[in-house]
Design a protein around this nucleic acid. Structure first.
Lengths: 144, 144
DNA sequence: TATTGTTATACTCTATAACTATA
DNA sequence: TATAGTTATAGAGTATAACAATA
């Protein structure tokens, strides 16, 4: 056989499914407590890493570019993001978090008490190990 | 200070966010290839673990019970799930996967090549470690 | 009285297609 | 010609409130 009952790929996919549903469910509730939808919250999460064009946002969020117009419209109307013209390409609009937007997304993350408590159950070495493994699975690109 | 730059809670939350986006993005694309929305796919994922009532589904999917009616309606119309009356409580309807529904959700998971390949980058010991850590963070309940 | 599932409603998300401005 | 962003449209997801059937 190619793996134990506990750690074969299908079992790990299932555990990932449960784990990420837990994270996403708690994120959705936390976003709602700030009167934001999950998609609006996810947009703020991406922008927390830095400003991005409309099309870059759509790519990162795995949705069609036309969706971003409405989502960013609503976030902008609430003063959480702002559109800025790109200096180098007049077609492009860069979207950036405002100070209010930063505050709101940080508040949302802070309210994810179940996830935060789960992470704080790990000691320093375990955190490092989890970090390395998640990077291996989701971030690293296989050599071509 | 309370942690290293790499493994403090905020950093791990960010890495989880990236991991979730990768998993969820690939899941959404795979579900779309079977003409299913992400919510429909997530419903099949939950039912793969066993039949559940409408309200239990809503709880697991972190949404209002009224949403489940339409989602299950569409899945039932395609023959992927079926509603069955509960033997013990005549108010309750249990939803179960059909053989077709099982086939479809297994196909969707099989199409998540990036995630599958990421997991298969890990050796047996690493898989076991990841499994234990995810259970610690997301599944275990703290003693009261 | 409380719970389960449904319906009606209003708003948001989503993909597709067509459009304008710019490259 | 191709790309960035927007608009229009239709179908789906979402929470709220109200309802009938059942517990």
């Amino acid at each position: 056989m190619t793996g134990t009952a506990r750690t074969d790929t299908a079992q790990l996919m299932e555990l990932l499914s449960v784990s990420l549903a837990s994270y996403y469910g708690e994120f959705t509730v936390a976003a709602a407590s700030e009167n934001l939808t999950a998609s609006q919250g996810k947009t703020l999460t991406v922008l927390r890493r830095g400003a991005a064009s409309m099309s870059a946002l759509a790519t990162t969020l795995t949705c069609d570019a036309s969706n971003m117009t409405g989502i960013v419209d609503r976030l902008e109307k609430r003063g959480l993001v702002r559109r800025e013209p790109s200096p180098s390409d007049r077609r492009v609009k860069n979207v950036a978090l405002t100070a209010d937007g930063e505050r709101v997304i940080d508040t949302i993350r802070g309210r994810m008490q179940h996830t935060v408590a789960g992470l704080e159950r790990l000691d320093v070495q375990e955190r490092e190990t989890l970090s390395v493994l998640l990077e291996r699975v989701f971030v690293e690109r296989p050599a071509t």
